[in-house]
Design a protein around this nucleic acid. Structure first.
Lengths: 340, 340
DNA sequence: ATGAAAGCGCTAACAG
DNA sequence: CTGTTAGCGCTTTCAT
């Protein structure tokens, strides 16, 4: 016997109409118990699989969303994906995913392709400062949630979720100060990203509030090669006079590189130099020494992001328009380990 | 003006028929240049997006595939995903992804849901030893590629791709022997997984070929807690007499834990003990000392997996049946760093 | 080169 | 409680 491919065939087998089968399958309407059972039985026997594409086409909603991550250079994304996926699964949604590798052109192409796929919304972890394409989405009524990466101007324009990056920077720096460090260098991230600017502002204010001057020589900018570039920078700065006695890395992977450079210089961590990071990427606990870091609730971030997206989707279904944007700020946690 | 939602409206605007618009849009058939331009113009002006769901329904192929990963405990998956995604994108496919968290029940549920979504195939990185559900897929003519995790019996039954894990184990062990290590412990992985057994076999044979006895006390089994459990095991074994002078970790994350334990014991790596891993997970170069490891070509693995899947899909489209299974074994690379 | 018509598999009025 | 009918947006003969 060949595969049953449609509700109609099931209907024929059971001697009922297609609508009845449909009703049984999605249980929205009452069906006589006897026919119900008969249908269910036939479905099971024939291994019938309802075509979700047809259903989506008919109903005008695909129950799919798109999750976009920038690349895997940064280890926080897997956890976020996990969170998104878990909620999506629970709520009957399926997730398309896409890696943009930070290339703007592809990014817009992907939005378009996904919209053609009739996805109901986007969770974007890959915004890069130029949000015009994303605003276009919103204007056209597409639900969007920005995770972690967004600009200040995005607040109130669309749904965002992150930790308080200013506080995270502040707390990290303060912790270094309190542990007696005098010359704290900061390894900044991409200056185009709000989150890194916030972390920098936190650093600056923590120093200022402690009555310290900001030494511009200690404000390290990420070189074009990405994290890895910090290797040379650290090696160089540690040989100068007035070398720093602590590094505040604005993301864990930068901390890893910095520690590598310090080890290679035979400097002791935290004896000679402290290092603190932000993220709590999966491996920071395994560094030598284990990295003190500001832990973001990554999985939860993904979960909440998906919930925010569903809120928009449902609101839109009901009222035909996007709800007023929401901003969620999650708490973080300073994990003191042995690098400070 | 409200959104144009169908080809028909475009047709009306241009004073042609829907079929013509369709023809223009997918360029399969010749259309007079003038009308072509007229249609394309209207499409652009109205920002029309063709509904891929409808097309898929009509054509009976959705141009989507499903990628399944077990969890993010192991850092090799992001790279594989990246590889899969890149080829999929090039070939006009869109990728659903799903994290199974190694829970068998959900896994079957996901297969079903995805098949209802009409995905054209599966790339599975999450097989767990009981492949019956997967075999069922194949029997029903669903293209499947198994990446990395599969059983010996799977070879020749379905498409698989991996490195030669036996050789990888052999080479790692041999390298430790040649660097003068006498008592090499192995940190085994899940014994239910073929790949770990292969790596173990490689270890065993390398020792045997070097005329060494296998000391069962040095064959360490992964405790139920996963990698982390090795922490206590290492601490214990290093205090016994005849402690090992090297660890062969059958996956990098295990190596990280082992190094952590060794550091905490104040042992020097590689002075007192060498450590070698397999994977070249993103961070192994940042360990202290940088981890010597057998690098798998992860991204390429994902790319080739996707190509294998496409091969099956295309063959099936033509001949209506799956092609004979293929087995790809990729080369690996011993990256000697400072942990040995 | 283009149009008319049928239909992919499903759901949702509407009628009974 | 169930069947009939229409149609979601698209492609694809078959005509012309």
């Amino acid at each position: 016997m060949d595969q049953i491919t449609s509700i109609k065939e099931i209907a024929q087998i059971c001697g009922v109409s297609a609508s009845t089968v449909s009703r049984v399958l999605n249980g929205k309407s009452y069906v006589k118990e006897e026919t119900r059972r008969k249908v269910l039985d036939a479905v099971r026997r024939t291994n019938f699989r309802p075509n979700l594409l047809a259903r989506s086409l008919k109903q005008g909603n695909a129950r799919t969303i798109c999750l976009m991550v920038p690349s895997y250079g940064n280890l926080i994304f897997p956890e976020i994906m996990r969170g998104v996926n878990s909620v999506a699964l629970d709520r009957g949604y399926t997730t398309f995913f896409s890696i943009t590798d930070e290339r703007q052109e592809t990014e817009e192409g992907i939005y378009n392709k996904m919209r053609n796929q009739q996805v109901e919304g986007f969770i974007i972890c890959s915004a890069i400062g130029d949000e015009t394409a994303i605003y276009r989405l919103c204007e056209e009524g597409v639900p969007v949630v920005l995770v972690n990466r967004f600009q200040k101007e995005d607040l109130g324009r669309l749904d965002t979720i992150s930790v308080d990056n200013y506080r995270a920077g502040y707390v990290s720096t303060q912790y270094l100060l309190r542990s007696g460090r005098k010359r704290i260098a900061i390894a900044c991230g991409d200056p185009g990203l709000f989150l890194y600017n916030e972390r920098y502002r936190g650093y600056r204010d923590a120093l200022r509030d402690a009555g310290r001057e900001i030494d511009p020589r200690l404000v390290l900018q990420e070189p074009p090669e990405g994290h890895d570039g910090y290797y040379d920078i650290v090696k160089r700065i540690m040989l100068q006079e007035n070398a720093p006695d602590a590094f505040f890395a604005t993301a864990d992977p930068k901390a890893f590189v910095i520690m590598r450079a310090l080890h290679d210089l035979k400097l002791r961590i935290p004896g000679d130099v402290s290092v603190i990071g932000i993220d709590n990427a999966e491996l920071s606990a395994y560094m030598e020494p284990p990295l003190t870091t500001v832990a973001q609730p990554l999985c939860r971030m993904g979960q909440e992001a998906m919930q925010m997206l569903l809120r928009q989707i449902e609101y839109k279904r009901e009222k035909g328009t996007l709800p007023p944007p929401e901003t969620i700020t999650l708490p973080f946690d300073l994990l003191v380990r042995q690098s400070t």
